[in-house]
Design a protein around this nucleic acid. Sequence first.
DNA 1: CCCTATTCGCGAACGGCGTTCGCACAATAT
DNA 2: ATATTGTGCGAACGCCGTTCGCGAATAGGG
Lengths: 250, 250
Amino acid sequence: MTDQSTAIWLRGERAPRGRAPEHTRGEIAAAAVRLADRQGLAAVTMRALARVIGTGAASLYRYVATRDELVELMVDEVNGEFELERRPDASWLDQMVDLAHQARDIYRRHPWMIEALDTTPTLGPHGCSYLEHALATLAVTGAGGRTRLEAIGVFSGLVRLLCKAERDRQQPGPPSARMAQRNAYLSSVAASGEHPHLAAAFAETSEQSSSEGPQYQGIPAAPSDGQFDGQFDRIVRRTLLGMLHEGDPD
Amino acid sequence: MTDQSTAIWLRGERAPRGRAPEHTRGEIAAAAVRLADRQGLAAVTMRALARVIGTGAASLYRYVATRDELVELMVDEVNGEFELERRPDASWLDQMVDLAHQARDIYRRHPWMIEALDTTPTLGPHGCSYLEHALATLAVTGAGGRTRLEAIGVFSGLVRLLCKAERDRQQPGPPSARMAQRNAYLSSVAASGEHPHLAAAFAETSEQSSSEGPQYQGIPAAPSDGQFDGQFDRIVRRTLLGMLHEGDPD
DNA sequence: CCCTATTCGCGAACGGCGTTCGCACAATAT
DNA sequence: ATATTGTGCGAACGCCGTTCGCGAATAGGG
């Protein structure tokens, strides 16, 4: 490893002298992304990834200083899936909504990204391109750099939040035993008579879905996926306007 | 342990027969909260908590089936800090904003709660009281149970998001070496000439704060704390209105 | 073309984690 | 007094991220 004390993006990938490495960062990142797509982020351990690549676990540390840095690589790899064309015809708001839709598609393709960004808030090259694009898009609002940065941060977090809600709503297969516990407790609370609003809302939720209602943030959510896209757009629009304009809404 | 297959809130704390336990859930939860307040959530390991309490690590499993369940206990313990009085005089929106302020204060007191809710979205007794309160508050909007549940989920997530932004903005002491790496890379990107908007915004950010600008979501954020509260309220209000009303804004 | 400097691959080991096992022991019910 | 039922917990298991050290591979300089 060249110099472990600087960011990975500033470290050269290949040393000019000595033996040549057998892999590349891109190769490793791609393999890690595939693994996470299939088995979740927790399954991406150094040993498991090394096995997939066909090498030893310790070898990975020739390419990456720590596991967190590996996740950074994965995140930036996936951030490269954004298509950041300029579209001067559309309003800044529509362009941001388009960005939000792209992010939503990416989260659907790579659900582990939702958790990965909980712990890994770093900007790689692709992240910088994304940020540059968003900053440029918001330039026409007249807002200052600080305001726009803040807005983009909240915007990204909000999109992630909504996508997490969507994902948690439609979990596959049988409820995960943990979920069963939650629903059992919620049912008992509903049946207890206190918390009448909760009981009503919970009943309303369960009446449509055949199985127990899934949850988000510990809060039961109905399979109202038909309305999801509309909600998504409206919330994103409102929030952006709230941050970047004083008055008038949608 | 009574029956490990049902939710902890349905399990009796004390068994009628046999030897009496030396601790209580509340005692353990409180100790864990204190530990997390002081050293962060990662420092709350079974062994460390046991040492604080003055017992063996394995003993904790008499009170809690898993570490996640311990975190659930901690979260619900802290959720008990909400003051949920009825205030029929205030508008539903003002009441929700008050709830958001309370949550913000709680996150300031217990910063680890922000991360704890990333992984632990379960409702305990206090969580149910909170949810009941919020549902009741939103009842006057005329929205259905499903819509209100969804709105409360996004509302809570958004508040947490904003508080995380605030927390990451004002980190104490010297930048954590990891931060230094990020800023070094961002500086190099800014200096590279591509990404002009990013360069401008980054320069604007660094000019005021003496040290390097801290970040949120990988995005540098300025110390605009004076405006934070205003932003906070406006975003929360807008988003709530966006979810619960079709037309008119604030 | 060999030699030496330099890097790479990686088996083995370390310390720490969550969790399980099994047993000695304490409290209660009979 | 005895049987029953939980409890406390030392020891151990398996997995994790990470480090060490060394043999093997490569490249540039003579």
